[in-house]
């Protein structure tokens, strides 16, 4: 669930376009509504507006309604993750699929009832153009005191008419260590002093530091830090950050509480290593949304999400999850050619 670099920075390879869609332009940001105070937005034939409780997506095939809290949490991840790897289903109807440079935005395209009824609708956009609209949408629709990255019990409410903003929260920079957290010149460890107190659910996580005895001249190489303490101080949920890098192998641990705000549809295998506590994953078919499995992960469990499913996690107590990604720029081309495996290991 993390990107090594901007996901909408395409590669030199041909961009996959399985639906053969043309690029759509026609973006608009409309003035604030006189009653609610919120702006409305348009990308191609998709129109977006919100009121005190709900967000609405309108296309030529219909109107889809989502609660404002669920929509904003999902929109926040789609923005923060740069459209991510594969599909970000905001719910069972609306979402985006990343083709790394271009993005399909859809209503009902991953819902077999919508597709069977011919009510699905898809348009394709340049990723950076659509991202610009999404960023302005999450900024305008997030009120003062509400943080869509935070667990619901640790933030304000998203409801009501337009009331200020929380741009500091919605424009957080994703943490991406270049080699390892804590190395000189790399991502710093989290402390009270730099604004990262220990989360209430991790008050029992020991905050000690490893003994580091580097001989003179080797201080940049002999290095260690307390990863669990680092994660206990995360101020966001379901937002992995890169903590160590072996070529394209990215350790992206994160703290999880409540519900993963999207159903993430994989386009490649993705590994989860449960570091503490417990998460339950509902797994559905990536193309149709039909249930396929329920996975219960406890501390120490290791599990791979196949490339043809979508998944959504539930964490009753804040937990630490190591999300492990392969950020190789070669993978989109392998996917386009049908050469990327659906399953990581066969035995």
């Amino acid at each position: 669930m993390a990107m090594k670099e901007s996901a909408f920075a395409g590669t030199d390879e041909e961009i996959s376009n399985p639906r053969g869609l043309p690029i759509t332009g026609n973006f608009a940001i409309n003035p604030a509504d006189n009653i609610t105070g919120y702006k409305s937005f348009q990308a191609g034939s998709f129109k977006f507006h919100r009121d005190e409780y709900f967000c609405y997506v309108t296309t030529p095939t219909g109107v889809h309604t989502m609660p404002a809290d669920a929509f904003l949490r999902a929109l926040m991840r789609d923005v923060a993750w740069g459209f991510f790897y594969g599909t970000v289903n905001f719910d069972q109807v609306f979402g985006t699929t990343n083709y790394y440079g271009e993005v399909d935005m859809f209503m009902g395209a991953t819902n077999e009832a919508y597709t069977a009824a011919g009510r699905d609708f898809v348009e394709r956009f340049k990723a950076d153009k659509l991202m610009d609209v999404f960023k302005q949408m999450v900024s305008d629709w997030t009120n003062e005191g509400y943080d869509p990255f935070a667990a619901p019990m640790e933030t304000g409410v998203p409801w009501g008419i337009k009331n200020g903003d929380n741009d500091e929260a919605v424009s957080r920079e994703r943490v991406t260590a270049r080699r390892m957290v804590g190395l000189p010149g790399d991502t710093p460890v989290r402390t009270d002093a730099n604004g990262y107190p220990v989360n209430r659910m991790f008050a029992d996580v020991v905050q000690d530091q490893p003994e580091v005895h580097a001989e003179p001249g080797f201080e940049h190489e002999v290095s260690a830090y307390n990863l669990f303490a680092y994660l206990s101080r995360s101020d966001v949920t379901w937002n992995p950050s890169v903590c160590s890098v072996v070529k394209d192998s990215l350790f992206c641990p994160t703290s999880e509480e409540y519900i993963l705000p999207v159903e993430h549809g994989n386009d490649r295998c993705e590994w989860f290593i449960q570091l503490t506590d417990e998460i339950t994953w509902n797994v559905k078919d990536g193309a149709t949304g039909r249930p396929r499995a329920i996975i219960n992960m406890k501390a120490g469990d290791c599990c791979c999400m196949p490339a043809d499913i979508r998944h959504q996690g539930f964490s009753a107590k804040r937990s630490m999850l190591l999300v492990w990604e392969n950020g190789s720029p070669k993978i989109p081309e392998l996917i386009r050619q049908g050469l990327a495996p659906d399953v990581a290991v066969e035995f």
Binding site: D204, Q274, L275, I294, C303, C304, P306
Partner: peptide, 29 residues
């Protein structure tokens, strides 16, 4: 916080609805 250890761990697992559990390569470190 439940950390688990080599001396004390509980495993979860895959409950298949319409899939093969082997595809999830599920183990415990």
């Amino acid at each position: 916080t439940d950390f688990g250890s080599i001396h004390s761990y509980k495993k979860g697992g895959v409950t298949a609805i319409d899939d093969d559990p082997k595809r999830y390569v599920f183990s415990n470190m």
